[in-house]
């Protein structure tokens, strides 16, 4: 077990951590504002993967143009498949459309499944969230496919080939890994700035501190909450597309495990705290990867949850969480 082996496993962990962090941000954002755990978030992650695959296929898969008989797709596809600029645009379109579609869906879910229950006991929206989660899973199962779908073109090649970006010692770092980690860091930085610097960000913080008082001060609470339910799912959708590209498939129940892990990451970092979610995500990813590489693959979840328990014993509020007295 050499140093390069340790480095390579850490690298796997950082990439996995980037995915966890993106999903964890959605959990923590909603919790910070509504004190509610959005159990449908893992399904929005899954839907992000499906929407992204659909967009990729329509914009770049010649077989789709043939099968549907949509001739107008061909010039569009040749633009997206020609040269580096077209390829970058293809990625922008895939991530952008997936994020926007899923973000809007997240707002719809909030409007119809959570808002009517805002003044109900805290268990009610929780159950509603579980219901939405089951509904979304079964909708994909029935309307799309029960099979695991490959995240590839018809010829089996990946939409984004995993080329080597650079080499450290004897360890190859792929473009996909760099792409995932950089994107998640940039998105966190943007979100953090947005929440701490802008006017609407201040409204979000105010709503999170005291919803009623913020409302009395003229903050449009419904708008703030809707925004949180757009941003969280949109980030989850981006993670869903990454997950499909990096690991190679989508399935209707693929959200469950990453959802639980990301929720764990959010708790480790201190739920409600954006930077905490990011820290927890990377920490969990690295711990899992090292456990899997140095102990055994069967131990990865054991070690991950031991970390959770240790954090909760010594810092019940999470690593970056503040000890807040329970609101009465």
């Amino acid at each position: 077990m050499s140093l390069s082996y340790l480095l390579e496993q850490t690298l796997n962990g950082i990439t996995l951590g980037g995915l966890y962090a993106l999903v964890a941000l959605g959990y923590t954002l909603v919790y910070g504002i509504l004190l509610m755990i959005n159990f449908a978030h893992s399904e929005l992650f899954m839907l992000g993967g499906y929407v992204g695959l659909g967009v990729l296929k329509v914009l770049s898969d010649p077989a789709v143009a043939k099968a549907t008989g949509w001739g107008f797709l061909e010039p569009i596809q040749s633009f997206f498949m020609s040269g580096n600029f077209g390829f970058v645009m293809l990625l922008v379109a895939t991530f952008g459309i997936s994020a926007i579609v899923v973000g809007i869906l997240g707002m719809f879910i909030e409007r119809f499944a959570y808002r009517p229950l805002r003044h109900a006991p805290r268990l009610a929206p929780l159950i509603s969230a579980i219901g939405v989660s089951i509904f979304l899973q079964n909708a994909v199962l029935l309307w799309i496919d029960s099979k695991q779908l490959p995240y590839t073109r018809v010829d089996g090649s990946a939409f984004v080939t995993a080329k080597t970006a650079f080499t450290i010692g004897s360890v190859n770092v792929s473009t996909m890994q760099v792409f995932i980690v950089v994107t998640s860091l940039v998105l966190l930085a943007l979100l953090d700035t947005f929440v701490s610097k802008t006017r609407i960000g201040r409204a979000m913080r105010a709503t999170s501190q005291d919803r009623e008082a913020a409302g009395l001060m003229g903050v449009d609470i419904n708008r703030v909450i809707a925004l949180a339910f757009f941003i969280g799912p949109a980030l989850g959708a981006i993670a869903g597309v990454f997950n499909g590209m990096y690991y190679g498939s989508v399935k209707f129940n693929m959200g469950f495990i990453p959802g639980i892990k990301s929720f764990t990451a959010a708790v480790i970092g201190g739920i409600g705290n954006l930077r905490g979610a990011m820290l927890g995500g990377f920490l969990l990813g690295i711990v899992e990867s090292l456990a899997s590489g140095f102990l055994s693959n069967a131990y990865r979840d054991v070690v991950a949850f031991v970390v959770l328990i240790l954090v909760l014993i010594f810092r019940p509020g999470g690593l970056l969480g503040e000890a807040v007295a329970e609101k009465v």
Partner: peptide
């Protein structure tokens, strides 16, 4: 679906 760590091993 994630076998990256296993592949390195």
């Amino acid at each position: 679906t994630d076998f990256k760590a296993l592949v390195t091993l």
